[in-house]
Computed example of a mutant assay.
Amino acid sequence: MDVSVLGCGRWGSCIAWYLDKIGHNVLSCGLKDAPEFIQLEKYHKNDYLTFPDSIEVSSDLEKAVKRAEVIVISISSQYLRSYFEDISKYNLDGKIIVLCMKGVEATTGKRLSEVVGDFVDESKTPVAVWVGPGHPQDYVKGIPNCMVIDSNNQEVKEKLVNEFTSELIRFYLGTDLIGSEIGAAAKNVIGIAAGILDGLNYTSLKGALMARGTREISRLIKALGGNEMSAYGLCHLGDYEATLFSQWSHNRKFGEEYVKGNTFNKLAEGVMTSKALYKLGKENNVELPIVESIYNVLFNDMDVKEAIGKLFLRSVKKEF
């Protein structure tokens, strides 16, 4: 299968490496001025992995789009709309779009598949999402994991799962696109909360964070028309180990550095996702106390300990 992976960052480069490893014809495409692209083009490696010679590295977006049966996109979720304004200039009929980012558009509250849906006819250009746990640092060592592919198109979903599954990644068929996308995006917000707890030496609270965070995201998924049980699957709860505990989690690290007063310069998708989920919670009358706390800390300068205190002073409720 001819696959073009658009995006040369940590996850994009890992996807290209993985899909080549399991036998697909892969082109890795990035912005010619981006440091991560220059590194891959010049040295065929980055800080995480080395590309084999079989992977072509190019900044030619038109070439990348035209050659591919499957176009995998792994960029910052907040830039997806502007990026698709470029991609949609080319004929996308008959191609499959696979989104490997985890976020919600902050300005509109739209899921990423909905953003793409503003540019393509999904009966001609099906859209899927690839979500779940895993870090490049583990995959390149041969440490396996499980992930999910979801789509409104059953045939496409089954095709991708069959083509992409290997001994390194076991893919499951998602059954709830809304839940898969919201759950995957929301786990990054919970990851920031986990990092804040680590930075305060409140790590023992992370168990409660996991339980209550999953519960509130399940409420949001249900309100948006999805299956609330999706929050307890691989897209959200199943990704917690990689996001709430891992030394490599950008969102957890962002939260830890934030509470210590340090700057974290790498992408933490949970920052803007907290804004998007806060918006969705208000619009759909869903209580999201943890999401709201992170939003207020990041965007309204609320003191972190005050935010935690407010969570503990909320009125008494049944757990379920």
Rank of each mutant, 00 (worst) to 15 (best):
V5P: 14
R10T: 15
R10A: 15
S13R: 00
K21M: 09
H24E: 06
H24F: 04
H24L: 03
K32Y: 13
I38V: 15
L40C: 06
L40F: 10
F51P: 15
L61V: 03
K63T: 08
A64F: 07
I73C: 10
I75R: 04
I75N: 02
Y79I: 15
S82H: 07
S88L: 08
K89Y: 00
N91F: 00
L92D: 13
K95P: 00
I96N: 12
M101S: 15
G109T: 03
G117D: 11
F119K: 07
D121K: 01
E122R: 05
W130Y: 12
P136W: 05
V140H: 10
V148N: 00
K159H: 05
L160K: 03
V161F: 05
N162F: 02
T165W: 11
L168N: 02
L177F: 13
L177E: 05
L177N: 03
N188C: 11
A193M: 12
A194V: 06
K206Q: 12
G226S: 04
E228F: 10
S230M: 09
T243F: 03
F245N: 11
S246L: 02
K253N: 14
K253W: 11
G261Y: 00
N265C: 12
K266M: 14
L267D: 14
A268F: 09
E269F: 03
E269I: 00
A276E: 10
A276G: 12
K282L: 13
V286I: 08
E287H: 00
V291S: 11
Y295K: 01
D303E: 13
D303H: 06
K310D: 10
K310H: 10
E319Q: 09
